[in-house]
Design a protein around this nucleic acid. Structure first.
Lengths: 195, 195
DNA sequence: TGGTTGAGATGACGGTGTCAGCTGTAGACT
DNA sequence: AGTCTACAGCTGACACCGTCATCTCAACCA
């Protein structure tokens, strides 16, 4: 029999899960506070005990998405079985795989955070820090910022184009994976010595 | 005194302008069919004579945005006063400038088109064709597809990160313009001879 | 044991997208 | 000329949404 705090925490967790589930299944329009509440076993007013408004709930969902990406990139970074270049590629693939498997979540994560953006940007910043460390092992600390931003942008851009259908395969005759591979190759070639 | 067809076309134009105006000023949530109608001088039901639903209206706004980008890239491509590399950079800047000056429109243009995506993708495709022609003059026809997609993704990604605030300047110590310049430099170095 | 706190339920309100039905007029037809 | 028709726009209505004020009631603490 759960204590009151436990029960509240459990409800909050259920609300987040329900929101993420609805988002994955039916896109942003399918996420309705009434349905979120219903799936969490509460009524439409209950979420307001845990989040100031709907935007804050969606913001929290996005933050958890970024935290998961951060964990994945961290796991890649400390994986002893991967070379520096392999880590770089794996880290980029981690980002793209969110766009592929949870496109609606990805678009939420990469849209301007509603309400207070600070928390979402901080959560995204942690995975960016992990990623920059990976980049640094390939191009050196002094180039990590520049090439890190370049690679992040490239991965983010190709992921977005792929999931929206704007990277039409029969027009460009290339895939997101090929572009990623090409980016990694170019940056690796630039190497630690290049300004 | 306008004929009936002229009057209808004028109303349709006013609806599109009003929607784009509201989108620019207040984001997607500010675009309401009632307000769009009011600004166009009609009531809330009138837009349904010109668009099947709200999504189609927003889709049409996105398409016009892509057409404008296509025109800009075309103008760059045929500008006799620019070198191939300068054209490449200018074309990318044209894309980014939309993200900078009309961020909400840009996010609409780059989100999964609601309803029938075919028209929006076709409109975006025209500017992509123009862009690929610019790329081809730098890296050659055989590499235009691959590097074109890479550059487009890079520009799209850096534009998106900049406008959402995820490219924190005090974290990455670089700017979107620097990343673009670096991309152009790398691709130009790859050149027509490289596979 | 009695008071307090806070999670959750409920009723209500304004706003929104959407549709059915109506009105009036521009253009076509006889 | 007179009549008919198509259709842009108006209005009322409906279901749904986010949000809030208010209420209830069980878990906590003194």
């Amino acid at each position: 029999m759960p204590t009151r705090a436990e029960s509240a925490a459990s409800t909050r967790r259920d609300l987040l899960d329900a929101a993420a589930e609805l988002l994955d299944a039916g896109g942003p329009d399918a996420v309705t506070l009434r349905e979120v509440g219903a799936r969490a076993g509460v009524t439409r007013g209950a979420p307001y005990r845990h989040f100031p408004d709907k935007n804050s709930l969606m913001n929290a969902v996005a933050i958890e998405g970024w935290e998961r990406v951060g964990d994945q990139v961290h796991a890649v970074r400390v994986d002893p079985g991967l070379s520096a270049t392999e880590k770089l590629r794996a880290a980029l693939v981690a980002l793209i795989s969110v766009a592929r498997h949870q496109p609606h979540l990805y678009q939420l994560m990469c849209s301007t955070p509603a309400g207070d953006p600070a928390d979402a940007i901080r959560a995204a910043g942690r995975s960016q820090d992990e990623f920059r460390d990976v980049v640094a092992t390939v191009v050196g600390d002094e180039n990590a910022n520049h090439y890190g931003a370049l690679l992040l942008a490239g991965a983010h851009g190709i992921a977005g184009m792929e999931l929206t259908g704007y990277l039409a395969p029969d027009k460009w005759h290339t895939t997101a994976d090929e572009v990623i591979a090409s980016l990694v190759r170019m940056v690796s070639a630039a190497g630690p010595a290049t300004g």
